[in-house]
Write a protein that binds this DNA or RNA. Structure first.
Lengths: 244, 244
DNA sequence: ACCCCGAATTGGACCGAACCAAAATATGAC
DNA sequence: GTCATATTTTGGTTCGGTCCAATTCGGGGT
């Protein structure tokens, strides 16, 4: 039986059924209990097997389909994705990014100030002139190797205090953590001043990244400009086509 | 009445109801008939107003919510997103990218060959050794200004013939068009040879982009490595957090 | 063996209905 | 007026059904 192979829904679990089903299937796929390209039982059969309605099964599958773990073909069936791609891309802060690569992040503070929004910031953050903002300027290190210069601006309303930020800005933001960011990349040459701060040779190439972070409800909570060392940093991103 | 303000479902339209509802709402939002932060009628009321079931209303809203056009708050209501961001990011080929910026794309072919996969390509494309591939090498221009050097590799099985590609590779791919791409960015210095091809000064910064394109069903159909001029090209991307 | 066609299977779209949980609002006590 | 509390409103989850459309597959005919 399918249920025995992949696992059952935990009795007593208060989470929504469709999420439980998702978890069970996701696990099975990740540990290859369900082989790539393998067909799942029909939705109607899954519903019977797990004793839930087909609507619930579909809602569970919906999530896994747009997480790219499954593919559906009308008339044919639902299949485990042929090639399960890793959790690539999907935003992360510098801190999290480094940790996920097995490196130790560290920051050297250059400045940490409170002030009134500058015009450019007001535009980017969608704030009215005169609003208070916090600014954070840091040199970022990974395993004690300088990686980037970072200038972050955050609305004062999104942080309890100026020194709420220790290492990770995103941790400090808490519920105001961005769920979505827009980034602009371009290649530049480091200025002499920047080279000195990062202690790298002059005229080295750098990746200039401008980032705007948005909360769930669409507020802008982060405007960050950074310069990454071209020789030490790769940025990986996933893009999708618009849904037609 | 709400329906009069935003529009009605077209009678006789054979498209699924939830898609029609989506279209109507999307239009209203885009042309500001529905103001940002404005609350929509309750789902139950929408269902009555449009004479569809609440399930259908929810399915329509679901789509708009994760397209960031709406936000939902349990107990409170559904609201037009405060800040409607443009269709940023969301992959496009060089051709489409340039057209959307109002520039005229052009290519200068350096090579167009057929051959057997190289080890690096086989790995990237997930092909077995010995498979046939097409390779396309071009200099890309926008408004007759050189923008990038591009080396693309595609499985022969995804294209009818080597010369199916005229300007846009993605057009030629047809149904095998990627719906998702993974990109790696890094900043580098152009080599002397590259500088010469692009007719730019030596030691200029460039954006090195490695791209893998995936079709709907997870097959890799594109492996492209390109070098963009740092002074002429900005790349914008949208990232999301994983769904927990 | 091969090909065409109808039947069975499978996902896709919809419906009406019910109950839960969070948020907003009305109510009443102080 | 103020504040705690009950009620209402709103989205969130789940059910059992029905019909449609793409795909697959078994038969029958050649």
């Amino acid at each position: 039986m399918f249920v025995e192979r992949v696992g059952t829904l935990t009795k007593g679990d208060t989470a929504p059924l469709y999420q439980q089903l998702q978890r069970v299937l996701r696990n099975a796929i990740e540990r290859q209990v369900l082989a790539p390209a393998e067909a799942l039982p029909a939705e109607r059969d899954l519903a019977i097997a797990y004793n839930v309605s087909r609507v619930t099964v579909r809602k569970a599958l919906d999530g896994l389909v747009d997480a790219r773990l499954l593919t559906r073909k009308q008339g044919a069936g639902t299949f485990v994705a042929a090639r399960v791609e890793k959790n690539f891309a999907t935003i992360s802060s510098f801190t999290e990014d480094m940790l996920s690569r097995g490196r130790v992040p560290r920051s050297e503070w250059l400045a940490r100030t409170e002030g009134t929004v500058a015009p450019e910031e007001a535009m980017a953050l969608g704030l009215s002139p005169g609003s208070q903002v916090y600014r954070f300027t840091r040199i970022r290190y990974a395993d004690n190797v300088s990686m980037a210069l970072e200038y972050a601006t955050v609305p004062a309303s999104s942080l309890p205090s100026l020194d709420a930020v220790t290492e990770s800005l995103y941790d400090a933001l808490g519920t105001d953590r961005p769920v979505r960011v827009l980034q602009r990349f371009r290649a530049v040459l480091f200025t002499d001043e920047q080279s000195e701060l990062l202690r790298i040779e002059r005229n080295a190439p750098g990746l200039e990244i401008e980032r705007r972070g948005y909360t769930q409800d669409g507020r802008t909570v982060e405007f960050t400009k950074s310069w990454y060392r071209g020789d030490a940093y790769d940025f990986v991103a996933e893009l999708n086509v618009p849904p037609a």
